[in-house]
Design a protein around this nucleic acid. Structure first.
Length: 620
DNA sequence: AAGACTCGGATACTTCTT
DNA sequence: AAGAAGTATCCGAGTCTT
């Protein structure tokens, strides 16, 4: 749900500038909600995540920095704000440079995970250093099995003595890598297996891991969905705590030099980057769209507890969903257009590890067409406006002059109006989701009408400014859609569930659970917008008896605090949330730079926190 | 080839609130 | 008077569908 870009950016330290609102709350001030983002504003502060395009060859200069330049202080601070030790950031930057935010983050996460998992390794352990620097082939981590280019590769030498020591400490890992190479595996494979299984894993376990990865790769290359990969593939993996490592290992590099919009050349062509959207966009199944019954089997490491549910816009820039998928355990997204469930389109992708059988829709069923939703408007609806559904409800609405111009054009033409006028009016109506509320009078939806279409209780957002309400609603879940997916939890948790809700917004997930009759014993909610927090609190106090804890800044939620909540509530049954889409949404003309952009860190927060929860629960 | 669609952002201005 | 909030207008392109 909610969120803004602002939050995306780490820097609390930087907050100063924009004063007014604290970053924790949305950018707009009052309301910003859910995911989206409005956040670009902060960009300036955002340190780090910029990637420069030129992929040129990386070279290690005499000062120990790749490409010869130390990272800007702001960049380091940005990662430190994300929770990484400064020393680790510096070291990582030296290893792979700071130009590629994706690679750098990946390496940091790997280091961190390894360090967390195995103290014996120490921070340095990470041999992550052996991780290949930037490979071109990217995405497919499991891809280049054959090429072991890396080996000799990296002359990482460098003058940095600290770095060398670091390398020395990795001897244990190197030894295993050598053994695996002797067995015919590439260094990449060996590295990945160690990343996944841990440096202390037996050689046989590492071998099994590589074999399992190869199976996965084969499945992917055949375009099989994840559910077709048997869990058996992953049985050999280590403990659950390793779960978070998986992704990191998976995402091995997708970097491309291109700019944000990234069209990456895609060396091999086809494949990963492309993740075609289904048509019709009905997900794995929908009421009334019974396709072939499918049962998916998730990799063991992807299964709960906790269950998790991640959402974002379906039409993100190319490569974004492929990347998100890699982070989230290679689970294939379920793309659904809420158009099939209610009267408004809403094309979204959902990555979750919930069962997909025996779902049930919320009752009563919501109106599925505009006329069912607003029968009163039928009286004024011109026959040449044949819309039956609204387009995606967004955060911005038409200004009054739009209505005025439409009215003026229609009143000055006959009936029916000429084609040119019809075309203009139809375009405006589609663009702004206008409804006919009077003779020749097309007006924007009111906030309460949007609440209705999105499945929220009446007046859910009432009491706040209209602009804020539009913004919050535009960034929200479509409750019926999400509830359909979450409905499987009802029978699984008859005594209620505990929820960690990221980017909560106005509580679309919570409302869905409530409408499903699922008791929430406790909800820990992270939402930057003050107005949204108030909206959730207000609704909670009126409808719930469980515990609600609201946190404003996702960046402040660190591992130890997560662990304390896990301990306090006995773990979380569900981690739910969408991440801001400011830089993903097509409507954004300014900074649609996907996950490569400067404001894309919120997704990584989701990822980070999810893995932190998994890790804490594994240690319970 | 043309059309349709997209959880948006920056800015200037006006209006409301403190 | 100053700040907060609301209003209006500007701003395209990537991707998919027809």
């Amino acid at each position: 749900m909610p969120q803004n870009l602002e939050r995306a950016i780490p820097l609390r330290s930087v907050r100063t500038k924009n004063s007014s609102k604290d970053w924790t709350s949305d950018s707009d001030g009052s309301d910003k909600f859910e995911w989206d983002s409005d956040g670009e504003a902060e960009a300036s502060s955002a340190p780090a995540m910029r990637n420069f395009d030129a992929p040129g060859p990386s070279t290690l200069s005499s000062n120990g920095w790749i490409n010869g330049e130390p990272p800007p202080t702001s960049l380091i601070e940005g990662y430190v704000a994300m929770g990484f030790p400064k020393e680790m950031v510096v070291r990582s930057s030296k290893e792979i440079g700071h130009g590629d935010a994706d690679a750098l983050l990946e390496l940091l996460l790997t280091y961190k995970a390894l360090g967390d998992d195995d103290d014996a390794l120490g921070n340095h352990s990470t041999s992550g250093c052996n991780l290949p620097i930037v490979e071109d082939d990217d995405d497919l981590d499991f891809e280049n099995w054959d090429g072991d280019d890396d080996t000799g590769g990296r002359e990482s030498s460098s003058d940095d003595s600290g770095y060398e020591e670091f390398l020395r400490e990795m001897s244990d890992k190197d030894e295993k890598i050598n053994s695996l190479r002797d067995m015919g595996f590439s260094e990449d494979e060996a590295n990945m297996a160690i990343t996944i299984c841990g440096v202390d894993a037996d050689l046989s376990v590492l071998v099994d891991s590589i074999s399992a990865s190869q199976v996965t790769e084969v499945c992917h290359s055949r375009n099989l969905s994840d559910h077709q990969v048997t869990a058996r593939c992953f049985d050999s993996f280590g403990g659950k705590k390793r779960a978070r490592l998986i992704e990191e290992s998976k995402k091995k590099r997708k970097r491309y030099g291109g700019g944000a919009q990234g069209k990456r050349p895609s060396s091999d062509g086809s494949d990963e980057e492309s993740m075609p959207l289904p048509n019709p966009m009905v997900g794995f199944n929908l009421p009334g769209y019974r396709g072939p019954s499918m049962t998916r089997v998730l990799p063991e490491l992807a299964t709960g507890p906790p269950y998790f549910y991640y959402e974002n816009v379906a039409r993100a820039p190319k490569g974004v969903w492929a990347k998100i998928t890699r982070f989230l355990f290679d689970i294939q997204p379920e793309f659904v257009d809420s158009l099939h469930l209610c009267a408004a389109a809403r094309k979204r992708g959902y990555i979750h590890n919930l069962p997909t059988e025996n779902r049930s829709p919320l009752l009563p069923l919501p109106p599925k067409t505009i006329f069912e939703a607003f029968p009163h408007d039928k009286k004024w609806w011109p026959s040449w406006d044949q819309r039956t559904h609204f387009n995606c409800l967004q955060t911005c609405t038409a200004s009054a002059p739009v209505t005025e111009r439409i009215q003026q054009k229609l009143s000055s033409s006959g009936n029916p109006p000429p084609q040119s006028v019809q075309k203009y009016v139809r375009h405006q109506c589609s663009k702004w989701n206008l409804v006919w509320v009077g003779k020749d009078k097309a007006a924007p939806l009111e906030p309460h009408e949007m609440e209705y279409l999105l499945g929220f209780p009446k007046d859910h957002t009432r009491g706040f400014g209209k602009t804020q309400r539009y913004k919050s609603l535009g960034n929200s879940f479509q409750v019926d859609t999400v509830a359909y997916h979450l409905s499987v939890l009802r029978d699984m948790f008859p005594n209620g569930i505990t929820v960690l809700s990221l980017f909560t917004g106005i509580g679309g997930g919570e409302v869905a659970l409530h409408k499903l009759g699922i008791h929430m014993r406790a909800v820990v909610s992270i939402e930057i917008c003050k107005a949204n927090r108030k909206i959730l609190r207000s609704w909670w106090d009126q409808t719930q008896t469980g515990t609600l804890i609201e946190i404003d800044d996702v960046k402040s939620l660190k591992d130890d605090e997560i662990a304390s909540y896990v301990h306090r509530f006995g773990g979380f049954d569900l981690v739910i949330g969408g991440s801001p889409c400011n830089n993903l949404a097509g409507s954004n003309r300014h900074h649609r730079d996907g996950l490569e952009g400067e404001h894309s860190s919120l997704f990584y927060d989701y990822f980070r926190i999810l893995n932190s929860v998994k890790s804490a629960m594994a240690n319970m």
